[in-house]
């Protein structure tokens, strides 16, 4: 037996032991994932292919094939309409949230008096954005840009627009302030990455005679690519999981409805998941292509 052989055996057992200890740390999560996420997900998918009747003791399944899916997509007019409205609203909201939170983060990164006060105010949404509170505020008209959408001039312009364009614009006008309420965490993420940009870069650029405008496009924005992608994904997911989201509400309502039922609601939940994943992929691809073009 050579010395080399012994060390290798030691190496191997060391590796194996490290892996074992690593598994020890994550074991609780793996068990939780199987029990509380994977199993229910598979179960929901199974429900979506059946008609589900829940009695006091048992759950009865009656196979339907893909009927629940075809019904949601082709027979139920409400669901498809809500799904389209959700997609349009998400695509309109994401750029607004991104641009708005970037601007706020850039401001909060400057030096000025009363910064602490403004920072406190701007992070308020993180604390109070919850379903019932937003619903109460929206009902009192505190979330829409006051009166803009109602003014006759705007109404006239809106009426002239083609239908495909009118809905997003109308949504924008009535919910602009509501959209801003979803920007809290995104401001934080931008601010944290702004503070990690190397100050020396700006000094070097200033010596080379670059202005603030050029520095923003050539230094600041490219350093924020990762933060932008994280923020975009976070925004889509927050908007989609929001408890007052109309699609979510509709699916929840159908769970207990006589004509709907658990099977139908499960099928819609999966269709909604697919739509959300498609939106995520679209926004992710769009941003990476844009970032690559910027980098060149």
């Amino acid at each position: 037996m050579s010395v080399q052989g012994r060390t290798r055996r030691f190496e191997l057992s060391f590796r194996a032991r490290e892996a074992l200890h690593g598994y020890g740390f994550i074991a609780i999560w793996v068990v939780g994932f199987l029990l509380f996420t994977l199993l229910p997900l598979v179960e929901t998918f199974r429900y979506s292919l059946h008609r589900v009747t829940v009695t006091a003791e048992t759950i009865q399944l009656e196979p339907l094939g893909w009927a629940n899916y075809t019904r949601a997509l082709f027979t139920d007019p409400t669901f498809v309409e809500l799904l389209i409205a959700y997609s349009v609203e998400t695509l309109v909201s994401v750029p607004i949230v991104l641009i708005f939170s970037l601007i706020i983060a850039l401001f909060l990164n400057l030096r000025f008096r009363l910064k602490g006060f403004f920072r406190t105010v701007f992070f308020l949404p993180v604390v109070i954005t919850s379903g019932p509170v937003i619903v109460e505020l929206a009902a009192q008209g505190a979330t829409s840009a006051p009166g803009i959408a109602d003014s006759p001039a705007v109404a006239a312009v809106l009426a002239e627009l083609p239908r495909a364009l009118r809905n997003p614009v109308e949504y924008l006008l009535t919910s602009f302030i509501l959209i801003l309420w979803f920007s809290g965490v995104q401001i934080l993420i931008y601010l944290a990455s702004l503070q990690r940009v190397d100050k020396a870069l700006y000094e070097a650029a200033a010596i080379d005679g670059a202005g603030a405008w050029e520095m923003f496009w050539k230094i600041t924005l490219p350093s924020l690519t990762t933060a932008t992608i994280v923020n975009a994904i976070f925004t889509v997911i927050t908007l989609s999981h929001f408890s007052e989201n109309p699609v979510t509400r509709y699916i929840y309502g159908q769970t207990y409805a006589v004509q709907g039922g658990i099977g139908y609601a499960s099928a819609m939940a999966f269709l909604y998941f697919v739509a959300m994943a498609a939106l995520l992929a679209l926004i992710y691809l769009g941003l990476t292509v844009w970032a690559r073009k910027e980098a060149r």
Binding site: L41, T248, A265, S266, A269, F273
Partner: peptide, 17 residues
């Protein structure tokens, strides 16, 4: 993935269990 999966895709079986 657990971040992306909407709650309504797992909530019904959980509730029944």
């Amino acid at each position: 993935a657990t971040f992306i999966i909407p709650p309504q895709n797992t909530v019904i079986p959980q509730m029944l269990t």
